[in-house]
Design a protein around this nucleic acid. Structure first.
Length: 156
DNA sequence: CCATCGATCGGCT
DNA sequence: GCCGATCGATGGT
């Protein structure tokens, strides 16, 4: 959910990708603590937004305890597929980097009570991380599900 | 300082 | 299926 100039909008989160620890060669923290990755080492609950390919803003939620770099890349919501398209449509950029995932920052998560059976959730290798080598590139840490019309925001 | 490359996307062959 | 766009973080000279 997001608030922009008083306007509130809601999206159903449908696709994410996990990045965990310095051991994960696909995780930016695999290169250690740097100016860019510092946010990943904070306590979970803050946004990590960076520029990819010089064009796309990537939105991630930091998820680990203090000192343990881990994050979830927000890859898609109902109606918007692709992490780059998502940030463009939601007008999200690096200004949000390091900000809390709370109403004060304008972008936060809300539990709407939707229960998704595990059998509906598909797990696949992460996208675009072949450079991480076979072990890490093959881990099935991308997850998504296809929401039904009745599950979309605003449906009744 | 300079070179490399990327958690992508849209357009074209 | 391939390729270029576009730029900041990173690492080496």
């Amino acid at each position: 959910m997001r608030t922009t100039e008083g306007e509130s909008r809601a999206w159903l989160l449908t696709e994410v990708e996990a990045y965990d620890s310095e051991l994960d060669l696909a995780c930016h923290a695999s290169k250690g603590r740097t100016t860019r990755t510092e946010v990943l080492y904070r306590a979970g609950g803050v946004w990590y937004v960076y520029l990819c390919y010089g064009i796309h803003e990537m939105l991630n939620l930091v998820t680990g305890p203090v000192g343990h770099p881990a994050a979830v890349l927000i890859r898609g919501v109902a109606g918007i597929n692709g992490p780059g398209r998502l940030t463009k449509r939601l007008e999200i950029d690096r200004a949000l980097n390091g900000k809390p995932a709370a109403p004060a920052s304008g972008l936060f998560l809300a539990d709407v009570g939707l229960v998704v059976s595990p059998r509906r959730i598909v797990a696949t290798p992460r996208i675009g991380v072949d450079y991480a080598g076979p072990v890490w590139a093959r881990k099935k840490w991308r997850f998504y599900f296809e929401p039904s019309a009745a599950e979309l925001p605003g449906a009744r």
